[in-house]
Design a binder for these strands. Structure first.
Lengths: 203, 203
DNA sequence: TTTTAAACCGACCAAATGGTCGGTCATCAT
DNA sequence: ATGATGACCGACCATTTGGTCGGTTTAAAA
């Protein structure tokens, strides 16, 4: 009996297994053997698609993490015309999402960043690009909000966008450390309170 | 000619070399061999003081990172009676400190947390304890500030303390990713602006 | 001075791990 | 049907790496 072959799907399966492994053990802790076990593939198959471990790691960032981030932001920014509301809603959704087990594992992007940014240039460049793309999205959407009178005129979109990103990362990180889902809700609540202060005062 | 022996000093040298290695490569990337090279010791010496790699990692957290944090906070909280000012000054000092090369490597505590908290229970417990101790310090100092009329009465010290911690961690993390010292100054500036809003409004 | 326990040495070991390579199997164009 | 090409297999290899252990040296106690 013949075994079906589906190159595209096989490659994706490897990538997803690698992402899971990295998420759980970090890139340095990710084991090729574990990916083979998860995918039930032989070593030759993996090395047919990726020349080495590093290339696989890069591919996970480029093809999984980056795409994931893009989709998320696209969804919320199109759903909520008010940029501040979009950000707040995204955070509320994240808070709920991370509330379960995910809370203990942290943010995939942040984890990888802390682990690899200062060790490997390739990882650093990729992760920096992702951050930049998130940053740009927030900035332009804040600027548009200012033009539409939805965001205070006296704030600096660049600085605020960066601060919001940093706080978000920090919140996930602290929650991971403390392993308390309630904390996550509180922290995102405080952050959303802060974001509320960026709205124009009602006159 | 005889070689001087100083057990205490030797142990400390190993710990410090290990801390550097972890700071640069993460715990999983730290190599025993590298520590031996840095300290010019033989393998037997290291394993005379520490039963294995994990115990060495734990010792670094307990004896280097924890102490470092304690000293820092003690210094600033005793120097500035106003807790909000103490926090702000600490951040300004950190911003300046990290401005150089350190900016690229991130916060030792945060790095280790992101890398190991979800992988190893022993690391997690230790890092959580450190976070808790920082948290407690900030909370009590905010509460005292409230009693002295230096901090707004309508804020929740617990939530605010946690938020400040999270933002701090996030700022270091983002700066590490973006590798821009100026960013660090901006972000800490924005955070300090936020902290200013916690002061009682002048009446 | 002798004894004793520690600090320290470094060759060696076993396991883990990333990676290779010759070969087999499925699939599809001709 | 048949050859060609890509997909996949899995035994094997080289290296790295944490860890061991018998032995040597220093320093202080007896």
């Amino acid at each position: 009996m013949s075994i079906e072959r589906n190159p595209e799907h096989t490659r994706t399966r490897i990538l997803e297994a690698a992402q899971e492994e990295i998420y759980e053990n970090g890139y340095q802790g990710m084991r090729i053997e574990a990916i083979l076990q998860k995918t039930q593939l032989a070593k030759g198959a993996l090395y047919h698609y990726f020349p080495n471990k590093l290339a696989l790691g890069y591919a996970v960032v480029d093809e999984i993490l980056l795409e994931h981030v893009k989709e998320n932001w696209a969804e919320f920014s199109s759903k909520y015309p008010n940029p501040l509301t979009a950000i707040q809603q995204l955070f509320l959704w994240k808070a709920d999402l991370y509330k379960n087990e995910v809370c203990f594992k942290g943010c995939p992007l942040n984890n990888l960043n802390q682990e690899m940014a200062s060790i490997d240039k390739g990882f650093h460049e990729r992760l920096e690009n992702i951050m930049e793309s998130i940053y740009d999205s927030i900035v332009t959407s804040l600027e548009q909000g200012q033009q539409q009178g939805l965001v205070r005129q006296d704030i600096n979109p660049g600085k605020i966008a960066m601060f919001i990103m940093a706080s978000y990362q920090g919140i996930i990180g602290v929650a991971k450390c403390m392993q308390a889902p309630q904390l996550l809700t509180d922290l995102f609540g405080t952050l959303n309170d802060y974001i509320d202060t960026l709205r124009p005062s009602n006159r």
